[in-house]
Design a protein around this nucleic acid. Structure first.
Lengths: 309, 309
DNA sequence: TACCTCTATGAATCTTTCTCATTGATTGAT
DNA sequence: ATCAATCAATGAGAAAGATTCATAGAGGTA
């Protein structure tokens, strides 16, 4: 029978490149591994590796098993970690996925009181997903997804947590700095700075530039909000940010937030969960706390600013 | 270490309701199971069941593990099945997911030549998905998804396979039978028959009725195309079908296909795969064959009708 | 060719798992 | 209340399985 060990062997051989090295990594002798491999290959009836001289190369079957290992082993590991948390009296870990770069600051304001209110629950935040946030949610890599794209799917549930306005930030010395609002055409000759996200997922394109048939002169990609803000302040480009984030930085930097279009660009952040998890109390509590910010400005975090912004 | 056996035990105890019964189902003695359970609980540091008199009830930790078991065990089983196919010289099983009821007839015309061309590949078709077709694709429950909703996600790839026109079918005796095309208002007093799908996913609502603010008088749900057609022919309601399917039945039944709106309702069917599977030859071949129908009417199936319809 | 490195294999040993036999506890029926 | 039936727990011995040691074979390299 195909066992967890076998998957571990396959994964380790792939990582280390040889049976001998994998054996050491697994704290076994080379002989033990060889025996184990021989046995499982005989049981499955198909080789996992082609022996090429002194080396191995995965067969088609082996590739399948490696993919299986990479999918299943993390789940085993996570389950064990969770069990050991239960063992220590802790409730579990709430794994939060973020598909919304600038929401990080907002999240911190939700997580702080949550950790205080649920001392036996840990929180983990992930930001990179092989199959996107929805995939991570469906694949049980995360328990909660913070995203601007709610995407109704069976088995999932999305709830809005807050509304905000997306604005363009420019340096105070920028020619556009004094306009009442920005038109798409006015960006045709600008350098746009954004997070490293597929442009098709940026609302600045979807809802502003593309409908007007405009493409900015250049598009730079930067990971961190702080650097983006500094780049903009130094006049090297413009960027789209939530108004509340822009305001926070505008205090300290030479920045001006500009309305995108005459009406402004309204956005919403949603929080997604699996319907199957509907009864997990500490998860419900998190969502309740997150949504609370929407209607009760003082409820989340420092209270220095309404979370609705 | 948490092993596959443990998950099997947990699943089986849940299915059978008792350790003793589970033991028999697993071809073990009750004693063996008891020992195994005791050991894994000691290793994990947390009980999996609360002992209630002579019975067991899952703890929170146990529920987690049961969920894990239900997620992982099928994947082990599928992998083993695939290995045994490799062992027999077969290439594997192409698991096709269908999110498009009436496409079934089309699929048969693609599958027939595919099976002939790839004698060492099996085909399996699934139509029910816990997390929807996309979830099934991401969760490796299927390898190919046939769907009208392409839904671009990272890690997935969608390709259009054919276009068709969605029409309304009514009985030949129906008052609407002679109109040039149907307006939304004309359905306000009708009984609509559809497949059992969430109305929000029916384009008849999304693109026709809802924009006009119309709701049909009744909405009946039926599983099989044949029965739907018979119900319509007998004057008990109207239904939306692909034109080519409607035509097929119109030959034999007293049916009339009607254009939906002045322009008609154009639809497209897509075929989705995981990008990671891009190099699997028999999968590429399937997609190639499926798309072929789009441009080469004689290429798929009986040739009695252009697959584009 | 000599040498190094990697995998394969047989036999012995050690570890784990399973069964048997038995006990204690709970439930339902008489 | 007692008896019978059912279920889980446990200890000891048996069976099965995994690991190691020692060694051979094979491919690549200097």
């Amino acid at each position: 029978m195909l066992e967890r060990v076998h998957l571990m062997i396959i994964r380790e051989v792939d990582r280390q490149g040889s049976l001998t090295a994998a054996a050491h990594a697994l704290h076994l002798t080379q002989s033990a591994l060889s025996h184990a491999v021989r046995k499982i290959e005989r049981q499955l009836g198909t080789p996992i590796w082609d022996r090429e001289g002194r080396g191995l190369r995965l067969t088609q079957a082996g590739h399948d098993l490696l993919a299986l290992a990479n999918r299943l082993l993390p789940q085993f590991e996570h389950a064990e970690a969770r069990m050991s948390q239960y063992a220590q009296g802790r409730r579990g870990t709430l794994r939060i996925g973020m598909e919304c770069h600038p929401c990080y600051q907002w999240l911190r304001k939700v997580v702080a009181p949550y950790l205080a209110g649920w001392p036996d629950v840990d929180v983990d935040v992930k930001q990179r997903f092989q199959f996107g946030g929805i995939g991570a949610l469906l694949g049980y890599d995360i328990d909660v997804l913070v995203t601007p794209d709610p995407l109704q799917k069976p088995g999932l549930h999305f709830a809005p947590v807050f509304d905000y306005e997306q604005v363009l930030i420019v340096a105070r010395t920028h020619p556009l700095a004094s306009v009442a609002f920005v038109r798409p055409e006015q960006l045709a000759d600008e350098t746009l700075i954004s997070y490293p996200v597929d442009p098709h997922r940026l609302d600045l394109y979807n809802r502003f530039l593309t409908p007007a048939g405009i493409v900015p002169k250049r598009h730079k990609v930067i990971e961190t909000t702080d650097i983006i803000v500094q780049m903009v302040a130094s006049g090297r480009g413009v960027a789209a940010l939530p108004l509340w984030l822009a305001d926070e930085h505008a205090d300290r930097m030479a920045l001006v937030p500009l309305r995108l279009g005459e009406e402004g660009m309204a956005k919403q952040i949603f929080i997604g969960t699996r319907e199957a998890d509907g009864e997990i109390d500490y998860l419900r509590a998190f969502i309740a706390l997150a949504r609370q910010g929407q209607t009760d400005p003082g409820g989340v975090g420092s209270g220095e600013r309404p979370p609705k912004c």
